[in-house]
């Protein structure tokens, strides 16, 4: 994948298919340590211990629709090729947490890309799920909690044309104000 935001979309879609109802995504640009850190945690069904060591094997999948499982192996490869690291912990039945660290200034680090598109796709396309997104640069941060949005909307669809316009405009402004990664 050409963008880190596509990896994020992919991993979160995986988590949603594992039955998660709350996803927390944190992206931190740590210039002092030259690291870009991505943390994603969910409250889905988790991964059994015996399978955890195989999740980054591209030829391992629990799916019956195909025989390869590329999502986590692509993400771990994207992190490791920048001198970074990839760790995943999971408790079967209560969720999964992964941390991927990328060499921030490494020539092979993929750009973050269209994070707005990834967030919009998750918020509008998966309205039944709560998403908390935090993007940190130095001491500044942008926080989005879809539970706040849903509370305000009181049942109005996230696919409503006016809601889509509102979300796109506000997220675009918020991320732009924070600065680029």
């Amino acid at each position: 994948m050409l963008e880190l935001s596509l990896h994020i979309l992919d991993v979160v879609e995986n988590a949603l298919n594992a039955g998660a109802s709350l996803i927390e995504i944190e992206l931190e640009k740590d210039t002092a340590r030259d690291i870009l850190r991505l943390k994603i945690s969910d409250n889905g069904s988790g991964i059994p211990k015996e399978m955890l060591s195989r999740v980054t094997d591209p030829f391992y999948t629990t799916r019956t629709t195909r025989r390869v499982g590329l999502g986590l192996s692509l993400l771990s490869q994207a992190a490791e090729q920048t001198g970074g690291s990839f760790k995943i912990d999971s408790v079967h039945g209560s969720g999964t947490k992964l941390v991927a660290e990328f060499g921030l200034s490494h020539i092979d680090r993929a750009p973050l890309g269209d994070m707005l598109g990834t967030l919009m796709s998750l918020i509008v396309g998966r309205p039944e799920v709560d998403i908390m997104y935090t993007q940190k640069i130095g001491s500044n941060e942008f926080v989005l909690d879809t539970r706040e949005i849903k509370d305000e909307l009181e049942g109005v669809s996230l696919s409503n044309p006016e809601v889509i316009k509102f979300l796109r405009k506000n997220l675009q402004e918020g991320l732009a104000e924070l600065g680029s990664i």
């Binding site: 629709t65 044309p161 889509i164 316009k165």
Partner: peptide, 25 residues
């Protein structure tokens, strides 16, 4: 998905549900 959301936001239709799902093989 981005193009779809853009079209929905430009339409006057509030009865269109946009959703995503996983791989179908």
């Amino acid at each position: 998905m981005d193009a779809l959301m853009d079209e929905v936001s430009q339409s006057d239709r509030q009865d269109i549900a946009v959703t995503t799902s996983g791989c179908i093989g």
